[in-house]
Amino acid sequence: MQFFKSVTDIKELKKQYRKLAMEFHPDRGGNEDDFILLKEEYDQLYKQLSKGSASHDSYPDVIDSLMKYNVDIEIIGTWVWVSGQTYQIKKELKELGFKWAGKKKAWFWHEGDYTKRHKKNFSLDEIREMHESEIVKKQHHPKCLKHA
């Protein structure tokens, strides 16, 4: 099954994915196997389209802006999550477009507009299980540095 036949750029890919995810998501009556195939095709095409794409600078820019801070940075799916000692930099996070997820005790960022389309409030561990996850940076704990 091919879901993204005519897609040629990341913006178009994301738009098409949102539409198809609504149709195929198991919580909305879709088939779980089809949804998994949709996500796999999306991830593969996303990687292809983002290689060398000048228009897709926002993820690297956001992550680069965070690297100087002593925080945990993780990419889960197409979202950037920041946790750890973030209270001191909450102003900077807000300026970058991050929002606070109180129940998850973490800040999140997503390119473009996002509208919550489900009723369930997933934990970060549940989100990690549903999507590919990559730790970009783990904060340095001062206590750990003393023993090094």
Rank of each mutant, 00 (worst) to 15 (best):
W79Q: 08
P26H: 00
E32D: 10
H147V: 04
E12R: 13
F3M: 01
Q48F: 10
E92R: 09
L124I: 14
V82C: 05
L124R: 03
P142Y: 14
G30N: 09
A101F: 08
F122R: 14
S65I: 00
T86M: 04
V80Q: 00
E32N: 09
A106W: 04
K39S: 07
A54R: 10
G112L: 06
D43S: 06
S83Q: 09
L145D: 12
I10C: 09
D27N: 08
D64G: 06
D113E: 07
L93N: 10
D125L: 12
D9W: 04
E129K: 15
A106F: 08
D61P: 04
L13C: 01
K90R: 15
F24A: 04
A148S: 04
R18L: 14
L45G: 02
D64R: 10
D9S: 03
Q139T: 01
E12A: 13
K103N: 06
D33C: 10
D27L: 05
F4N: 06
V80K: 00
R128E: 01
E126A: 15
K47E: 02
S133Y: 00
M1I: 11
Y46H: 06
A101C: 10
L45H: 09
L93C: 14
Q16A: 08
L37H: 07
K120L: 13
Q139P: 00
H56Q: 11
N31C: 14
L20I: 04
L96F: 07
E40G: 06
I63E: 10
I10F: 13
I36D: 05
E40L: 14
D113R: 08
Y114H: 07
K120T: 14
D61A: 15
K99G: 08
K14Q: 02
L145I: 13
L93R: 14
I73T: 03
D64C: 03
I36Q: 08
E23T: 10
Q16P: 00
W100K: 10
D43V: 06
K138N: 02
D27F: 07
L38R: 06
L37F: 08
P60T: 08
